[in-house]
């Protein structure tokens, strides 16, 4: 589903964030991505959703070589991927409902369908009662869950999450991880970047470890 073939990423300032990374992730997998701060986890996720382009190497997502996706193809590519961002990226002047509905509005669903799906997604993350609340009135953990609801509301084939449990207490973190496992069970490919080694090593999934932009473990099954 996601395949890195000797991918390197050098930022404009000359910093090598990723070096010669080769990874294959299958369609039905849930994979954790870990490593120290600055190891290149976010960079790897950004490459998959085309926020950045690789400096070298080939990256294939859902059978599509990303080098062939031009600027006009980027939005369509992003619509096929749900992303939970490290810094939430919520619209702070819109209520929770509108935030979660955004991907559906972009995809052009009709209003009834939007309402149905948004409520289903909010129900999954336990925020159904807060749909009219503004994001600033929510705790960090609740904001994180709004981000998760938005990522899954469009039923994407691929789900990327960057530190989705960064602001949550252990109990809630475990619940959120269970949620990701549920999505994975219905066929979504899930890739989660996380520091929380204690939590992710308890769950029995592949763990990819990066150090200074190099792959340490977990390149293939």
């Amino acid at each position: 589903m996601i395949s890195f073939d000797r991918v390197s990423k050098r930022y404009a300032q000359g910093h090598d964030a990723l070096r010669e990374i080769s990874i294959d992730i299958a369609r039905d997998e849930l994979v954790f991505l870990t490593g120290h701060s600055g190891a290149g986890k976010s960079t790897l996720l950004r490459l998959i959703m085309l926020m950045e382009r690789p400096s070298r190497g080939q990256l294939t997502v859902d059978g599509r070589n990303l080098a062939t996706v031009g600027p006009r193809g980027v939005p369509r590519h992003r619509r096929d991927i749900g992303v939970v961002f490290q810094n939430h990226q919520l619209l702070f002047d819109r209520p929770v409902f509108d935030n979660v509905a955004l991907p559906l509005i972009i995809a052009g669903y009709d209003y009834r369908e939007v309402g149905r799906r948004v409520r289903a997604a909010l129900d999954k993350v336990g925020l159904l009662e807060r749909e009219r609340a503004m994001p600033v009135t929510l705790s960090g953990g609740e904001q994180q869950r709004v981000g998760i609801a938005r990522a899954v509301v469009g039923k994407p084939n691929i789900l990327l999450a960057d530190e989705p449990t960064g602001n949550l207490d252990p109990l809630l973190s475990a619940e959120i991880m269970q949620l990701f496992e549920e999505f994975n069970r219905v066929g979504v490919t899930v890739l989660i970047a996380s520091h929380d080694l204690a939590l992710i090593s308890r769950l029995r999934h592949r763990i990819i470890t990066l150090r200074d932009g190099r792959l340490v473990t977990g390149s293939a099954l």
Binding site: M49, M51, R72, P75, R76, H77, R78, R79, V83, F85, Q89, L90, L91, F92, D93, L102, P103, I106, A107, R150
Partner: peptide, 16 residues
Amino acid sequence: RDEIVIVKLVGGSNAF
């Protein structure tokens, strides 16, 4: 500006 960035992040096209 922030709103535009977020809309583009979740797949909004330039036309959108």
